[in-house]
Nucleic acid binder design. Structure first.
Lengths: 214, 214
DNA sequence: ACCTGAACACCGTTCAAGT
DNA sequence: ACCTGAACACCGTTCAAGT
């Protein structure tokens, strides 16, 4: 909304359009994907959006897949920040961990197209982008770290943290994907499903038998 | 393999190529997707494969999305049969339920491209195909039924079966998708991850506290 | 160094025409 | 009723040429 104004501001007319076209291309791509979905992302459209030739992109990205990889990388960065924020904000304990789960699913539902690019079919962004891999790993580590810290507090049984992280990541990813794809019944309350699922998970990974049979 | 022979058999040369082109198109599409992925599925290629014009398909499917919907429907049918087989073969109890989980993930890993079409981006097959929805529901019901039967046996706590099914479906779907997309570390043992995950799930959904703290 | 614009090969889809 | 083949609008990508 407010950003739209910025592009109307004065710009050096007889210069190249952007001092940092690479960055502008990435932002335009993210914007298009979030608003209209991946299918609307054509190199022609993103070029037109920036007032630039459709082949100008090839100066900054090797091809469309590389552009999508950059979009995915940006997505993982955003997701990690959300997860860390939820964990900290929730008090780095069981409440914070549950908040992480909700934050994950909420992120996917708020940015479904962006989320799909992050976990793409391999059709798009089939490139083995090392920066993308690293950003994905960092997001995953936010989850692992939260598990380890809870294990230190005796809140979670001392299983292999990475295995536990894989388990929980799979769960929230599955909920997110099925919700995005509309696989659940129309009226399904995703937040409720997430809460109940995390409840079941906790009872499973708790070290002792909690007396909460209420 | 054996089916490849059939197409070499005598055919009425001066007739239309197929008595049931619709069925042949679907089979060719499934074959192409399983062998070469969705990106290789072009209407030109599938037509060429059957010795038919590229626009002949439009007599039998409204468009490419409808063809993909048929592929997805066939996939759900295959998946349901696998799930039911595992449940029955495992003795309709806890072992059978765990076998269902493994069968699900194994199906996805064996037919990754086919599985992706089933849970497509909405990019492809965005059509609201009622037959597809029904076949998907039938596969889901195989899971719900197994849960209800275990609840009757006292093997699972009496939560809402549909919610429990959503929870578990999300888990196995998440494991499958992340494994297909190569999101796990290269050497990751998916079968082991599935087993450990199902173990954690069971401890969570069991009605009583099992004395297996070994 | 950065961008343009024409060209190429490839799509899905349509439609008048054939049998 | 079923299929053909030319045509259309749309892609991503390349490359010689401009500044």
């Amino acid at each position: 909304m407010a950003n739209a104004r910025v592009r109307l501001a004065r710009k050096p007319a007889d210069q190249y359009h952007h001092g940092d076209l690479q960055r502008a291309l990435l932002q335009a791509a993210v914007r298009t994907i979030q608003k209209q979905g991946v299918h609307a992302l054509t190199l022609r459209a993103v070029g037109e959006d920036l007032g630039v030739s459709r082949s100008a992109l090839y100066r900054h990205f090797t091809d469309k897949a590389a552009l999508l990889a950059a979009v995915a990388r940006e997505g993982f960065r955003m997701l990690r920040i959300e997860l860390e924020g939820a964990w900290e904000g929730g008090g780095r304990g069981r409440a914070g961990f549950e908040a992480m789960g909700h934050a994950y699913v909420r992120f996917a539902l708020a940015q479904p197209s962006h989320y799909r690019v992050m976990f793409g079919s391999g059709l798009e962004r089939n490139v083995a982008d090392p920066e993308l891999a690293e950003e994905g790993t960092r997001a995953f580590l936010a989850l692992v770290n939260a598990l380890v810290e809870q294990q230190r507090q005796g809140l979670i049984r001392p299983d292999d943290p990475e295995q536990l992280a894989h388990f929980i990541w799979s769960l929230v990813h599955g909920i997110s994907m099925l919700a995005i794809d509309g696989a659940f019944r129309p009226g399904t309350d995703i937040e409720l499903l997430t809460r109940l699922s995390l409840e079941r998970v906790h009872t499973g990974i708790a070290p002792e038998l909690a007396p909460d049979a209420g």
